[in-house]
Design a protein around this nucleic acid. Structure first.
Length: 276
DNA sequence: ATAGGCGCCTGCTGGC
DNA sequence: TGCCAGCAGGCGCCTA
């Protein structure tokens, strides 16, 4: 998303900003419009799942896409779709940046300066970026906990940016069972998982993301990584490695997909919800 | 410390 | 054909 946005928004001035009345998951300051208006976007960054647009004033517009968030640059003349929550005109020209979110699990908010940004992200306590996880840190994070690998991968304080799809895909890639306790991981297994996360995310980025239902990139195009899923959403299909039917279960409150041969069968204590 | 459940929202689908 | 339970890329809060 950030790579799509950069060429289209950097250097552009926000000549008008408006938003819907509907609440997202973060409050807006009373001065948000004043803070954004006439600011020029200097850079687009990312921290975990947060997209950060840095203005020349030092203010930041931060956006989380949640489950159904969309952020795109479109022609001003394009019809405004339902559930559009934020519209920012670029350079008084023919394009605008729109944020749309059907389920409103996403959020958008304005931080006035780098101090506010710093304290915001401090309060999030996000872990390191998945591409930048020190092996030693990762090994220790796993070693001290009885939580399952699935729960650990989804915990943004351990590692920032991995969600349900990429957690399942990385665990398959590493050939590890999602229900394995962190502390039961050997050094080699920990390392294999760390590398699998990077590999999966790199492939997903190359394919411009995963479009199952709602996701589109900053130019409105769907991603293609869904075509390369090995386990996510493939319950009942043949494993591409061993032809066994992919199974699914509920773990850490989320649907979890795995190969019972390549990754192992869950212990009886963890009831398999669905294996269809 | 950790698991599990719920709530927040809307839209789509599969099974009856 | 029509209906509705169940489910969906996230996450914060509560209880046990």
């Amino acid at each position: 998303m950030v790579r799509d946005l950069r060429p289209n928004v950097i250097g552009r001035r926000l000549t008008s900003v408006r938003r819907s009345k509907q609440a997202l998951r973060k409050r807006w300051s009373q001065t948000w419009a004043k803070t954004l208006a006439n600011g020029t976007i200097q850079g687009v960054e990312r921290r975990g799942k947060w997209i950060i647009m840095v203005l020349d004033s030092g203010a930041r517009l931060i956006i989380h896409l949640g489950m159904t968030g969309q952020l795109q640059v479109v022609k001003t003349s394009a019809p405004i779709k339902a559930h559009t929550h934020l519209i920012m005109r670029l350079d008084a020209g023919h394009h605008e940046l729109r944020f749309r979110d059907v389920r409103r699990f996403g959020s958008a908010t304005v931080l006035r300066d780098s101090q506010e940004a710093e304290s915001f992200f401090q309060s999030c306590a996000l872990g390191p970026e998945p591409f930048d996880v020190p092996a030693e840190y990762w090994r220790r994070e796993l070693a001290h906990t009885r939580r399952t690998l699935k729960a650990i991968l989804l915990d943004q304080r351990v590692l920032a940016g991995v969600g349900n799809i990429y957690a399942d895909e990385a665990l398959f890639e590493a050939g590890l069972p999602p229900w394995r306790e962190g502390r039961k991981m050997s050094r080699e297994q920990a390392e294999r998982l760390r590398k699998a996360i990077e590999a999966v995310l790199n492939r997903a980025i190359t394919q411009r993301g995963s479009s199952i239902r709602d996701y589109v990139g900053g130019n409105g195009d769907k991603g293609n990584f869904q075509n390369e899923f090995r386990v996510y959403g493939r319950t009942g299909e043949a494993c591409q490695r061993c032809r066994t039917a992919i199974a699914s279960m509920r773990l850490a409150g989320r649907s979890t997909h795995f190969c019972p041969v390549c990754q192992g069968k869950p212990p009886r204590s963890r009831t398999v919800a669905r294996t269809t």
